[in-house]
Design a protein around this nucleic acid. Structure first.
Length: 455
DNA sequence: CGAATTTGACCTGCGC
DNA sequence: GCGCAGGTCAAATTCG
């Protein structure tokens, strides 16, 4: 009886053992499978990583070349005067200067930037560029700490608080005037340059990501719509101001005029507008400072713009040189950043070849910005402050076409499309690389785009 | 109650 | 010098 029990027990244990072995085998097999799949995943990720690295490197290279060219246009005369025998060995120095010319917020005068750039160390340059290069134009890392942001621009003495300024205004007009003079000295050109942005917007003002405080409203002559005056309230002594007024001809169009540059870092949402206006201002300033008759930057555009005659009016008729960015053809919302790039815009891959969809495949007569814009210098506009007009709005349809077509075409059509796309890309590359003015706006756009994708 | 906006007064530059 | 228009200030008011 006991033996039988023993036998049965041993049999049961044997069966148990067999089961354990099977389970072990299954577990091992499962582990092997998991391990293999995990390994495969790791390999895929590695490949993807390498691919992304290459892509990033390519973008960085493109971006750097654009910056080089941008600087070449922005300060051609300066370089000639400072260093008439500018050789290729000086490229590194030029690149240092580029960093300043593309930076948001602070735009020192050419002479100032020259001084600053000479002082700027190689480490500074690398700290901005080395990581990914894409930070350029978005983050201003000039060693300005958060506490520094509250101090007046380039002012060694501790700046007066807003309260002090108030008392100064009341009690001492001379000091106020002096202070205003100091501001102008610190930002001589940028202060005077104005960038006017036309947008279709139902809201009282566009949301450009920056904080504004309204300080006045006035009904200007010839326009029943009141003009509102805003001051940047991010930093107490930020000199940036903007005027907002509805267009007389079309009440749905909002005209926002920016003046000055921020002396503090900007929130990411604000960099889109800031970089765009900064680029436009730099275009304007580089043009007006080099030659009042026919700036090289703008005449280059005439080569492309055969349908629209190029026109640069004399800025002497207005106290401020003003450049107008016309976004009225974009489907706008209250947020600038949202209409800056359409919803179907895909900046993640094939950045330059896919995202920059240009609407004129036959030729590059009109350089388009971000797939739907055209640089348009319109002499017939009756805009207030109008001097130069950059029309960055065009038909949204044109922008959509490449994206819509991909889903509906046959294989042969796809091949045709691919080849034509490639040809188009090459054509556009030529257009981009040969047009410095377009590059400056493009550089700003890329800055904005990178900023948007980073959020 | 503090912050933001409104609004009339004031300042400044420019043309006549 | 005067008037006009654009721009700014600051007290009053509103809003959250």
């Amino acid at each position: 009886m006991e033996k039988n029990l023993d036998n049965s027990l041993s049999g049961a244990s044997a069966v148990k053992e067999i089961h354990n072995h099977e389970e072990d085998d299954i577990r091992k097999a499962l582990k092997d499978d998991e391990f293999k799949s995990a390994l495969a995943e790791v390999n895929e990720v590695k490949l993807e990583n390498a691919r992304l690295k290459m892509l990033l490197q390519q973008i960085e290279n493109d971006y750097n070349s654009l910056q080089t060219r941008l600087f070449n246009i922005c300060q051609p005369d300066l370089k000639k005067s400072v260093n008439p025998t500018c050789t290729s060995e000086k490229i590194a120095d030029e690149e240092e200067c580029e960093l300043v010319s593309l930076r948001l917020g602070r735009s020192p005068s050419p002479s100032e930037s020259k001084k600053v750039d000479k002082k700027r160390t190689r480490e500074d340059y690398h700290c901005v560029q080395s990581n990914d290069g894409l930070k350029l134009g978005l983050d201003y890392s000039s060693g300005v700490s958060e506490s520094d942001l509250l101090k007046p621009n380039n002012n060694p003495s501790p700046g007066p608080t807003s309260e002090v300024v108030k008392t100064m205004r009341k009690g001492d007009d001379e000091s106020v005037k002096k202070r205003a003079g100091d501001d102008e000295v610190s930002q001589p050109n940028v202060k005077r340059a104005r960038v006017s942005v036309r947008t279709k917007c139902d809201y009282p003002t566009i949301n450009d990501g920056c904080q504004w405080r309204k300080y006045g409203q006035k009904i200007s002559r010839g326009n029943p719509c009141p003009r509102s005056y805003y001051r940047c309230s991010v930093a107490p002594l930020c000199p940036v101001r903007k005027q907002v007024q509805r267009c007389l001809e079309d009440m749905s169009i909002l005209i926002t005029t920016y003046e000055g540059t921020h002396n503090h870092s900007l929130p990411i949402e604000a960099t889109a507008m800031a970089s765009t206006t900064a680029a436009a201002a730099s275009m304007l300033l580089s043009g007006s400072s080099t030659s009042s008759q026919s700036p090289k930057n703008f005449t280059n555009l005439a080569n492309y713009s055969k349908t629209t005659p190029l026109y640069l009016s004399n800025s002497s008729s207005s106290p401020f040189p003003t450049i107008t960015l016309d976004f009225t053809a974009f489907p706008t919302t209250s947020s600038f950043t949202s209409f800056n790039f359409p919803s179907n815009f895909q900046p993640s891959s094939g950045l330059l070849s896919n995202s920059l969809s240009f609407s004129s495949p036959e030729s590059y007569t009109i350089p388009k910005i971000l797939g739907s814009g055209c640089l348009n210098y319109d002499s017939t506009s009756t805009l207030p402050y109008h001097k130069n007009l950059i029309n960055i709005g065009s038909s949204q349809k044109q922008f959509d076409q490449p994206f819509i077509g991909k889903n509906n075409t046959s294989t042969s059509d796809k091949l045709k499309e691919d080849s034509s796309q490639q040809a188009l890309t090459e054509t556009l590359t030529k257009a981009i690389t040969s047009d410095p003015s377009f590059q400056s706006v493009l550089a700003a756009a890329i800055s904005s785009m990178v900023g948007a994708t980073k959020t």
